[in-house]
């Protein structure tokens, strides 16, 4: 039997060694982790306009993501009053660099509407056509879901979407990310009925309206409802700015 003192000594030495080891590793890999996170979210942004890229999205490399972001995408941050927020103001709120990509969406989501920063990406296709990519965020069955919605330059037609989730069930709720055919349904849907904002609705049992609805996912009603709510609320936040652009 070991004495209490020797047990304490053993535990103390062991924990310090472990703590040191892990701290070194964490620090050493930190920059790599950060680049990975950044590329991952940039890739998700490009996912919304996958059809309009000149390269195959499923084969895209990290360098290509950076290149497209550097040359073809303009990043702006707007607020719910429809005004552009200058980079210095964004930086003041604690986002280094002040670009749209630096905005922490999870943090902004919790803020009241008039304080929210809304990142917006403008992608210029090779033929000069512009696409506007909005960030939306909501709640699925288990945890957060979020996505990017790309609008064509009429600010009405959806050019593509990409969704992601934190903890939806594989095969059910996770289909919003994994099922490419389901995601494709959103392409070409409209968000305005005349001048009235209408958003796109995920209809359980099959879309009834060819312009404003898409099919639901069987077994994932709550996640699908979450998508509907997320789109209606998320796109509406950008509406003042979109209205200005429409003129």
């Amino acid at each position: 039997m070991h004495s209490t003192a020797s047990v304490m000594r053993f535990v103390l030495i062991m924990t310090s060694i472990v703590a040191m080891l892990l701290a070194f590793l964490q620090n050493g890999l930190k920059s790599k982790h950060d680049t990975n996170e950044a590329i991952y979210s940039k890739k998700a942004t490009l996912g919304a306009i996958a059809n309009h890229l000149s390269i195959d999205y499923s084969q895209i490399s990290d360098e290509q993501v950076e290149e497209i972001f550097g040359s073809k995408i303009k990043q702006i941050v707007v607020n719910s009053d429809g005004e552009k927020v200058p980079e210095e103001k964004v930086e003041e709120k604690g986002y280094k660099g002040g670009l749209a990509e630096s905005v922490d969406l999870a943090k902004e989501h919790k803020k009241p509407l008039d304080e929210k920063l809304l990142p917006l990406y403008v992608f210029t296709k090779d033929d000069g056509k512009e696409y506007y990519i909005l960030n939306v965020r909501g709640k699925g069955l288990w945890d957060a879901i979020w996505g990017c919605v790309a609008l064509e330059d009429d600010f009405n037609t959806i050019a593509g979407v990409s969704y992601d989730h934190k903890a939806e069930t594989p095969g059910l709720g996770a289909e919003i990310k994994d099922n490419k055919a389901w995601v494709k349904q959103f392409i070409g849907k409209k968000i305005y009925d005349g001048d009235v904002f209408r958003s796109v609705y995920v209809r359980k049992g099959g879309a009834k309206d060819p312009v404003y609805e898409v099919d639901g996912i069987s077994g994932a009603t709550i996640t699908a409802d979450g998508v509907s709510k997320m789109l209606a609320k998320g796109i509406a936040e950008y509406e003042p700015y979109l209205k200005k652009l429409r003129g």
Binding site: M1, H2, S6, V7, F10, V11, M14, T15, V18, L21, L22, L25, Q26, L29, K32, H33, N36
Partner: peptide, 27 residues
């Protein structure tokens, strides 16, 4: 390893290795 705390020690060893795996995968 002191017998009284052997389970905890084992757990710390496993947890450390798992964290190493996690950080490496993330990178």
């Amino acid at each position: 390893i002191p017998k009284q705390v052997r389970m905890i020690v084992q757990l710390v060893i496993i947890a450390t290795l798992v964290t190493v795996v996690e950080l490496t995968l993330k990178a």
